[in-house]
């Protein structure tokens, strides 16, 4: 069975969910699926489908990179760590000193999103620095 057949359930779900710029390519025995999801729930759904086809993502024959579309007008984000505080750092990287913390569930101000992985934020206390973007959920 080819990789495209193996993951047909996933690519069909992606098409049905309205993933923008959906690209499915096979290269050196690995399937790369990229696209932009309209919201976080759609992205999570696709990961659940992936987990059903390949339990615990153990095979390593797929790289699923679906990002969530963000409205340019968004100015605030919620901290979505599992339970802990989110470190705010001086620069973009975990090697950078911690200059503050944002609480789990706190809504903070987005200053700049030009770096995909690290967003420049400002807390309500006025602390400014970089947070890992994956733990921030843009607020409509």
């Amino acid at each position: 069975m080819s990789l495209q057949e193996k993951y047909a359930g996933l690519t069909n779900a992606a098409t049905a969910a309205g993933i923008a710029d959906l690209a499915v390519r096979e290269q050196d025995g690995i399937l790369y699926v990229d696209g932009t999801a309209p919201d976080g729930a759609t992205k999570d759904h696709l990961w659940e489908v992936y987990n059903q086809i390949d339990p615990n993502f153990a095979t390593g024959d797929l790289v699923l990179n679906v990002n969530v579309a963000i409205d340019a007008a968004v100015t605030h984000a919620k901290v979505i760590t599992e339970s802990s505080n989110l470190n705010i750092r001086k620069g973009p990287g975990t090697d950078q000193p911690i200059v503050g913390k944002a609480a789990h569930g706190e809504v903070i101000t987005l200053v700049n999103r030009s770096n995909d992985l690290w967003w420049l934020v400002r807390t309500n206390d006025g602390e400014e620095g970089y947070c890992y973007a994956k733990y921030l959920e843009p607020q409509a």
Binding site: N56, G60, V63, D116, L117
Partner: peptide, 11 residues
Amino acid sequence: VAALKPKKIEN
């Protein structure tokens, strides 16, 4: 990890 554009993820 998948968002970091790896060639492969060996889990």
